[in-house]
Write a protein that binds this DNA or RNA. Structure first.
Lengths: 369, 369
DNA sequence: CATAAGATTGAGACCGGACTCACATCGATG
DNA sequence: CATCGATGTGAGTCCGGTCTCAATCTTATG
């Protein structure tokens, strides 16, 4: 109970120095543990600091060391467990190294991101970890990079900036997953994403998100390698809110030349897609095969358990933080890490039903046995 | 290789002043938009600032305003969607009011929390929002409160500190949920929580978590009101990792005098509990009724959909941030908000099966192979 | 015993803004 | 025309630390 009542001004080194009867400089040295200080002085100062319950003002300290021991993290949506986990990896690692994390949410809005980056820079964070909302419009990130401030991307790349990036080889895993679906006989494979675009998907269009672009590219390559036409009409973007996801799912599955497999671009979409499928009275995987990105625990619980693409999100967070801290502390950067996503085959993908009572289920061109 | 070599000093007001050919004071006034500045000077200064792409150093600004426009948030685990949502509510609101958020994870560890609070205070955050890991050991929080720094609790209370707290009336909803189970005929109701304690649950023991204590209290009251004995033996704490949750679930359901209903204390536990139930070959709700805290989207997807206790987590986050900012800005605090959790009856609670032999373990509702 | 190397110490200059104060300037007023 | 209040303006202080520098005090050594 050393509290001498409500104290408005904080205790400063000057106060401690006075109490310990030494100069401010000596007190600062004893407290900051640098320079030469006699045992006698050190003891007196530390005792005084203890008695006054002195706490250094990190702001002032940052002012002239130039280091804030704080890193800024800019993500699209912490509410999404994907980022929740990544953030956890980042904060765990940062804390261990003595850094704090300022978290900013952008809602995947570029303007918000520009703002976030500026604010964090103004606060003099030591470095930034960003999941770029756009891989196209990246001027603000280029500025950061050019200014020499440590920067690491997570989850997505941004243009062709030469910035350390922690992300999985998205094209590869998308290709693998698509091949898996193709082998099961599916030809009409839908891909549903919330990515906002100005117009519906057309081949070759520029997509803001490198992640989504890569996923589509992986699908395209798989179809190409199999000598099959890529069903571009089933790539559905702009699946904004729950309602829109449902209606898109319905569209895609009602079409006379309907999809027989659906790939959901993230866990949040997946929920609505699966609900829509259930509402249509279709069953997984008998009527529709289903596959989603991100391996959340609940995917094991639904029946059938969902086949997913697992990404080492936590580890990516850890690696991003480590890489950033390495940059901040001027250490040589480690070999560029490559993270591998894995296809976890559970029960939601099944062979294409050919015999059913619905003639319209037949895949377009080539009939497979 | 920018490393530590490329030391570029930031542009400061002094630089801008020189470029605009005015005094530092005038430049500061024009930039900070305070005091009296002639149009001529303002224009020149702003132009110079623009040309040099000047950005104010928020650290320096904070130094003498005493405001950092940053609030600290201390939670147990951001990875848990419960906190993810709350955090989202906080950051959304904070941003709107011009505040940033420094997020710290404590892993529900008191020592980590003490440390987190100290660090945030050292960084001179304007206020703190804390989900106290312990409602018992709260000295560090009392210190904060006594020092007069704005503080708001979320989700849980801490001792009898008179601090604004955003939490649901946990006793009430627990009582309601328990009554619901009692009405369905259940008498052996298990409660499983990860709360760490030194010894197994015994009535009247002091629990670190006010939340858990309240939930148990609600159950007790429901039994009491119904004139029934409260099955204390089925209150299971220390359900640490997945394995321990499973084994506890098994224990509770294998006992000759086994539980017929299980309440999971949060969404993370729920996953393992449900899996364990499935593994035992029991079906929900025919063999076991199930109820959990927190209404996550996936609970609607499993079959049967899970009956849950929904808490307005996002709104609590919003309210916490608003209350804190009100405190920071010296505004009168609003009327204490009371949040109400609601029991969402879906399909996982059913009437007690009487008489039926439960030796045969037919999986029926969940888990088709 | 003198002297140089080394350890301590205090004064004061920063860091980058915010803000006080004294000193112009200037039009308006009586 | 003298006076007054309302701007403008620059010099300088302050916030709370870090850090340089010169002065002082100990030692060890020739």
């Amino acid at each position: 109970m050393n509290g001498d009542g409500a104290r408005r001004r904080d205790v400063t080194v000057a106060d401690v120095a006075k109490a310990a009867q030494v100069s401010k400089a000596q007190a600062a040295r004893a407290l900051g543990n640098y320079g030469a200080v006699s045992d006698d002085v050190r003891e007196r100062v530390l005792a005084a600091a203890e008695a006054l319950s002195y706490r250094p003002n990190e702001l002032a300290r940052s002012m002239n060391t130039g280091k804030s021991h704080t890193i800024g993290v800019v993500v699209g949506d912490i509410e999404n467990p994907h980022f929740g986990l990544a953030t956890r990896g980042i904060t765990d690692t940062a804390k261990k190294a003595g850094y704090n994390v300022i978290l900013v949410n952008t809602d995947e809005d570029r303007a918000a991101e520009v703002d976030a980056v500026r604010v964090l820079l103004d606060k003099r964070v030591d470095g930034l970890i960003v999941a770029p909302a756009s891989s196209v419009d990246t001027e603000h990130l280029q500025d950061v990079h050019r200014s020499g401030r440590p920067l690491v991307f997570i989850d997505r790349t941004a243009g062709d900036l030469e910035v350390e990036t922690m992300a999985v080889d998205m094209v590869r895993i998308s290709l693998e997953a698509t091949q898996y679906l193709l082998e099961a006989g599916h030809r009409r494979i839908a891909f549903i994403s919330t990515l906002r675009t100005d117009s519906p998907y057309t081949p070759g269009m520029t997509l803001e998100s490198s992640q989504i672009a890569d996923r589509i590219e992986g699908m395209r390559q798989a179809f190409l390698a199999a000598g099959l036409p890529f069903p571009e009409d089933l790539v559905r973007l702009n699946a904004g809110d729950e309602d829109s996801i449902r209606s898109i799912t319905r569209e895609v599955l009602r079409d006379p030349n309907r999809a027989t497999a659906v790939v959901a671009s993230d866990g949040l979409i997946a929920l609505s897609v699966v609900e829509a499928i259930q509402e249509l009275g279709l069953s997984i995987p008998a009527d529709v095969s289903f596959l989603m990105y991100d391996d959340f625990a609940w995917t094991r619980l639904v029946s059938p358990p969902l086949t997913v693409i697992a990404q080492p999100v936590y580890n990516m967070g850890v690696a991003a933080a480590k890489a950033l801290i390495r940059q901040i502390e001027g250490l040589p950067s480690a070999a560029p890490a490559q993270f591998t996503a894995t296809l976890v085959r559970r029960g939601s993908v099944g062979p294409l039903q050919t015999g059913g009572d619905r003639a319209d289920l037949q895949p377009s061109g080539l009939g497979l046995p």
